[in-house]
Amino acid sequence: MNIFRLFGDLAHLASIFILLHKVQTSRSCRGISFKTQALYVAVFMTRYLDLFLGTWVSFYNTLMKLFFIGSSCYILYLIRFQFRTTYDPNLDTFRVEYLLVPSFILGLIFNYEFTLTEVMWSFSIFLEAVAIFPQLFILQRTGEAEAITTHYIAALGIYRGLYIPNWIYRYYSEGSVDPIAVVAGIVQTGLYADFFYVYFTKVLQGQRFELPA
């Protein structure tokens, strides 16, 4: 564990709390992509299969994994049931098969071992890299977003961004490299570039999140 990974994980936790806070206080999931949230459930379920295979990394690791699975399922429940009337499926129209199918094929090609758990792990890494697309698509279509929704997306971007110095640190301190995670992580962080540009130049200056026409 190093400071970059710890703060990355904390940013990931923060993103979930920000999202829950937005939904609970506004009693609305307007502007939130159910599809992105469903993809995160798929990501956590396929990546954390090792939970059920008795592989033990640490208490921290297991606790976080259980939290990510539990909270992502709870968010789906909130959108689907508790606040379903505030969810607009007509805005959330990104085709998830364009993300699922290529991620699965990449998982079959690039993995550390051709076993169920390793292929699923690779699949989850590739899927996570692109899972934000339906959410960014809503942003693109509406052209604007509530500040709190943008804080949520920013926290997610910071989480993946911080994993990059973590990998550099681990390369020098442990000599370990995880090429699949590194390549997917760099792509994932890159996808936030446009978003971050608007976020830093507008939202953090107190202006509304509005995409240039």
């Binding site: 976080m64 792990w121 994993y163 995880d178 995670a181």
Partner: peptide, 10 residues
């Protein structure tokens, strides 16, 4: 060398 297995990152 084979990368980290078990995967210790989240």
């Amino acid at each position: 060398e084979k990368p980290v297995t078990p995967h210790d990152e989240l």
